[in-house]
Simulated assay, not measured.
Amino acid sequence: MSQPEHTAQHSVPSGKPSNTSARDAMWGWLIGLLAGVLGLAPWWITGATLPLQNLWATQVMPDLMPTALLPLSQYEATTILALLTVGGAAAGLAVRIWSPARRRLVTWSAVSGVLVVHLAATIQSFAVLREGLLPGSLSGLYFGGLLAGVIGCVLATLVALLLIASSSTVKTTIGFGLMAIPVTTWAVVWVVNVVGFLNVPTAVPTVARWVPAVLVGCALAWCGLRPARRVVAWVLNLVFLWLLPALFTAVQSVLGTRVLAGDVPAMLSMGRDVFGRALGPDGAALPTILLALVMGLTGVGARFVVARRNSLAAG
């Protein structure tokens, strides 16, 4: 009797790891699902009516355009990037805060949850777009360009999620730096869509200019400078503050022009010119870089002082 009882006692725990793994995977998937919805929420609260299209087959009023889960339009390129990547970043942050024992399992479960939302939104939106566009090669080029852009945004979302969810402080800090501009854009989209474009406070553009620097400064203060390899995260984040706003400006300028629409060489040339000017001495990058650097160093100094006081008090 004792032998079967001994066997029975040890047969019960054998199912616990798999049950715990399944539960963690489900929670990770739900985190990704909810984060994906959160990222797209600023667009959905507007009613998610497809923006007017230059190549639409029929003349319709804006309110009569079909529903699309993504704001597919060349004029909304940076908005689409923000809506998609913020969902991934939110999922990564949730995993980072949770810090589960099965981090890899939960992280990839969160990835699958985000992808469910993004793939559903992409398929539905492009199905609506294809149905309404004029036939022709220009419409095909437009459709293909938008699809390639959205796929690129989804890949950027996965990068942001994996970096921020990582147990590595350096990788997480780099993820924060990459997301500073998209998060700011996402927040501005929220404000615009809640209060209406004509009612946006005049201070919003000014505040939005400095928000990325504040976010990066906080990330650098959290990261710290020890061990020395963390300097890599500092350098990259400051480079992101210099390059990404200029890149966003160039992309929006090129895609927002109707004069050069369809002329790819001319659009690329214009993009290089705008990007170069935004990076030059007339650009606004230097003050924001300095603000982020000062905030980061101040935060590191404050943490050092607090740690020193605690050490002396304990001694």
Rank of each mutant, 00 (worst) to 15 (best):
L146G: 15
P100W: 08
L115D: 02
G217C: 00
N54K: 11
V192H: 07
L286Q: 09
A307K: 14
G36W: 07
L215I: 13
L146C: 13
G32K: 01
V251S: 09
V231S: 14
M61W: 08
L220Y: 05
L286N: 01
N310I: 09
S18R: 14
Y142G: 09
I97Q: 09
L30T: 08
V116P: 05
A57Y: 07
L163Y: 04
T85M: 11
G136H: 09
A203W: 15
S168L: 06
L34Y: 00
A121G: 08
L119P: 08
H10N: 13
Q252M: 13
A8K: 14
V207M: 12
V117C: 09
A213G: 11
R226W: 10
L105N: 06
G301M: 12
L198S: 15
N19S: 15
T184K: 02
A41K: 01
M179T: 03
V128K: 12
S167F: 03
R303H: 14
S269Q: 12
W29H: 09
L293I: 01
V200Y: 02
A91I: 05
G144K: 06
A101I: 05
T298I: 11
G136R: 11
W222N: 11
V251T: 13
R309G: 13
G140S: 15
R23I: 13
A180L: 02
A101M: 12
F248N: 10
N193H: 10
S137C: 04
A120V: 15
R309N: 12
N237T: 10
M1E: 13
P205C: 08
I151G: 04
A57T: 08
L243D: 04
T249W: 06
L33F: 13
G224H: 04
Q124H: 14
I31E: 05
A203S: 14
K171G: 10
T79P: 00
P100V: 08
L162Y: 06
A314T: 15
D282Q: 11
V194S: 07
V183N: 05
G152D: 06
